[in-house]
């Protein structure tokens, strides 16, 4: 019984297409006429900003957050309703007021801040 099985499987294995088939030319004609969508040559192809690079998106998102944070602070600096203490902290940290100074001023000389206790 098993021998018959083996013979049968061997026959199936040996079954070959009687025709000689060569589709290379027709397939290559099709391939050349129909480029795949992402093969179009533009700035996004094979570039740093190729759409299939997920990590570019992550970096862009982090950069956007940082820019948002900075722009909020800049906007706050130039609006009239800023918090004076917060503004003072910002300018005190930026300007060098000397190691022993008790007071500091902002860039427009509008505000005097006391630094001592």
């Amino acid at each position: 019984m098993e021998q018959n099985d083996d013979l049968l499987m061997q026959s199936v294995r040996e079954l070959q297409c009687p025709k000689l088939v060569d589709v290379t030319q027709s397939v290559m004609d099709y391939v050349r006429e129909h480029p795949l969508p992402h093969q179009h040559k533009n700035i996004l192809t094979n570039s740093f900003f190729a759409p299939n690079r997920k990590w570019v998106g992550y970096v862009a998102a982090v950069a956007a957050c940082v820019l948002l944070f900075l722009s909020v602070n800049v906007v706050m600096l130039f609006t009239k309703d800023y918090n004076e203490e917060r503004l003072g902290d910002l300018f005190v940290s930026v300007y060098d007021y000397g190691s022993n100074a008790d007071y500091a001023v902002d860039s427009d000389m509008d505000y005097l801040y006391y630094l001592g206790e």
Binding site: V21, V23, T24, M28, R32, P35, H38, Q39, K41, N46
Partner: peptide
């Protein structure tokens, strides 16, 4: 995938007879 479509011919030549026999069976 980068645009050199002529390289596809290598795949066609490599697998053509196998695919033909599989289709036939």
């Amino acid at each position: 995938l980068k645009g050199d479509v002529n390289r596809y011919e290598e795949i066609v030549r490599e697998y053509q007879s196998v695919v033909t026999n599989l289709c036939y069976k």
